[in-house]
Every structure is written in C-alpha cells, then in structure tokens.
Nucleic acid binder design. Structure first.
Length: 364
DNA sequence: GAACAGAAAAC
DNA sequence: CCTCCTTTCTGTTC
C-alpha cells in the first residue's frame, strides 16, 4: 500500500518571525543576516522576506551586496536561539498530526518537517489535504506564521512539492502525477543533487530528470559509485522508500567563525579558538554528553579547507583536555602552512550519553 | 575494522 | 570574495 507523506516548510522563517515580532516591518524588505566577525564587511543573507526577494536578494548572498542592491531594506542579525524556541512549538503542532501517535515525524532542520498520515487519512488524499490545512491553520493561529505543504507518496516528492506553491500553499502530487511532475525538471531541482553532481551530469548530457531516469543504472554506478548511482536512478524515477523517521540526536557539536581579518598570528587564532571552545563545551555540558573525537577546521585566505582530528581512547567531557588537544592540532595546522587563515572551527564528535556517571569535578 | 581526511549536500 | 552546522559517503592507511 502506498504512503501519504506531508512536507511542511515554513515560509521565509527567520524574516517572518521578525515581521511578526515587529509589525512595523510589514511591507518593508527584511533581510536577516548572519554577520561574521567583520562587521559590515562580512556576512551572508540567512533569510529574507518576499519584498527583499523581489529586489533580487536571496539567501547566501553577501550582506554587503544585498545592501548595495537595496539600501532601504531593514537588515537584522540572526537570533537563532529565539527562532529555535518558535521552531520547537511549531514542531510539536506538526507532530501532533503524525501517524502512530506522532511517531512518524521527522524534523528536517529548524524550519521544515516530514510527517506520514497514511493511517490518519485512510489513504485518502482529500483527507490528507484537510490535515495539511489544519496544520497551516494551527501554525497561523498559535505562532502567527505561514507555511507551505507538499503532499506526495514519498519524502522526495513531498519535499519538492512543498516548494511548488509558496508562500502559504498546498501542493498535492498523486502517485500517477509523479512522472509528469518530475519529467521536465532540471536535475538540479531534485532534492539531493547539488552543484557538483549537476555539472557532472551536464557533462554526460543529462540536463532534466527524464534524461537521468532514462540512463542505465550501471552507467550511473560506474560514474557515481554504487550507493549514489542507484539513488540517482531511483530518485529520478520518483521512487523513494526512505521512511519518515525521527533523527536520533546529533552525533557532533561544532562551531565555526571568521577571524576579524586574515592572519596566521597564533595569539589571534588561539583567542578565537578559545571562544569557540567555550561555546562548544557549554553545549556539551547542556546535553550532558561525552565526546571521543575532536576536529579542528581551518579555512585559508584562498578558501582551501583543511581538517585535522584526534580520537581519544575513551569518551571524555573535560574542558581542559578539549582545549589542550585543540591547541595541539591548531599548532600543527599553523606550522604546516604559511598562508593566512580566514576562518576556523572546532567540533567534537562520537558523542556518548553521560548516563549517571559523574564528571571528574563532581567526583571530587 | 577503525581512524582520518576530504567532498558533497542541505539548512 | 564567501555564514555556519551537521550528516553521509568515499578513499586511503594501518
């Protein structure tokens, strides 16, 4: 029996929250920026509302460029923790409509989620559409925000359907419409295909999804490897068995940031590293986990990225140790190149729950 | 198999 | 000249 899956996608989430908080922003172009450590100079657009999009602004665009394009737009810094709280409320609303007592639910980032309603809807797409409308009504009433919903027989189709009518839309793709829905789409629109794959496919004369679906799996496997090759063939054919399943909590906690200016002076680099370490470690504490691996990332002036990691013999949650290892790795990276550094990052991984056991500090 | 580095993707 | 966070896969090495 075929499934009915909904993908709920919040409309211009960060900017919409800011508009809702401050109604005087309504009607203006609102651009929410992720500023780096470089003031006006650095930073990229995180989200912007439709007035800003009409002016040609889009996410990932450098903030200074957005400002040049539309100087009278309102530029706001991201308030991630606040958006996360709003997100939590919305996710609970969405989850309440998912099959199996909310179990067939999958959060996908801060502003979108999948839910399966095969059982609740009794397999009826009209009923599924009513559920989508109820979710939209609840989110609007309780949080004052709009969202767009895609409905399809699997996650890929639902996900792609939700972006069909935006903002504030519902798009249903029946099983017999899947082919027509996908056929003429550029391959880059397929969820899971990014810039690199798009270009590789273009080199093979594959531009739209039907070109891809028509290729021999073996050929795709020979170019992209077994897993990716079969995935491409299946996805392009509209087939996706991936279940809606809640992600287990993340296995990594990390932070990255830009230096105020490119440098390779160790005191400057290490003081930023200290800030990042503080943040990472407080998240580790908040989640009461231990970590077994530590990774330091360096992005040079020329944007070349290098990572170096170290694995501990046992999971630990000591700040001093984290700091020591990170300093050690960073020292090696600084010694291994004469190029200035633009950004750095630190990440702990291989996380283990601290169930019951005390930290060293508590022990004494 | 584990550890490590890098690539790719999406948020 | 460009933000930040996480996951997943691939290739290499031991």
């Amino acid at each position: 029996m075929s499934r009915i899956i909904l993908h709920v996608d919040m409309d211009y989430f960060y900017a919409a929250i800011e508009e809702h908080e401050d109604p005087s922003l309504k009607g203006k172009a609102v651009v929410v920026c992720m500023y780096s450590n470089r003031g006006e100079e650095g930073g990229a657009v995180s989200t912007c509302n439709y007035a800003a999009r009409d002016a040609g602004i889009h996410s990932a665009m450098p903030c200074r460029l957005a400002k040049a394009v539309k100087p009278d737009a309102v530029f706001l810094p991201v308030r991630k923790p606040f958006y996360s709280e709003v997100s939590d409320m919305i996710m609970e609303i969405i989850r309440s409509y998912a099959d199996n007592d909310g179990e067939l639910f999958e959060k996908l980032g801060i502003d979108e989620a999948f839910l399966e309603v095969t059982t609740t809807s009794g397999g009826d797409l009209d009923k599924a559409q009513q559920i989508a409308q109820s979710i939209k009504d609840d989110v609007k009433e309780l949080e004052g925000l709009t969202c767009s919903v895609g409905i399809g027989p699997n996650k890929i189709i639902a996900k792609m359907a939700s972006s069909r009518q935006k903002p504030d839309g519902i798009t249903v793709i029946r099983e017999d419409e899947v082919d027509g829905f996908l056929r003429k789409m550029p391959v880059a629109k397929l969820w899971g295909i990014g810039k690199v794959t798009e270009e590789k496919l273009a080199g093979m004369g594959i531009d739209i999804v039907e070109d891809l679906a028509g290729r021999d799996v073996q050929e795709l496997i020979s170019v992209f490897g077994k897993i990716r090759g079969t995935w491409l063939k299946m996805a392009a054919s509209g087939i996706d068995d991936d279940p809606v399943k809640e992600k287990t909590s993340s296995d990594q906690i990390g932070r990255m940031a830009s230096l105020t200016h490119d440098t390779r002076k160790s005191d400057l680099v290490l003081s930023l590293l200290d800030e990042l370490l503080d943040d990472v470690f407080s998240k580790v504490t908040a989640r009461s986990v231990s970590f077994r691996s530590i990774t330091v990332t360096v992005i040079y002036s020329n944007f070349k990225t290098v990572t170096k990691s170290h694995t501990l013999n046992h999971p630990m949650a000591e700040k001093a140790l984290l700091r020591e290892v990170s300093y050690q790795i960073m020292g090696e990276l600084l010694d291994s190149s004469t190029v200035n550094i633009r950004r750095i990052g630190v990440r702990v991984g291989n996380l283990h729950e601290n169930k019951g056991q005390k930290t060293l500090a508590e022990f004494f």
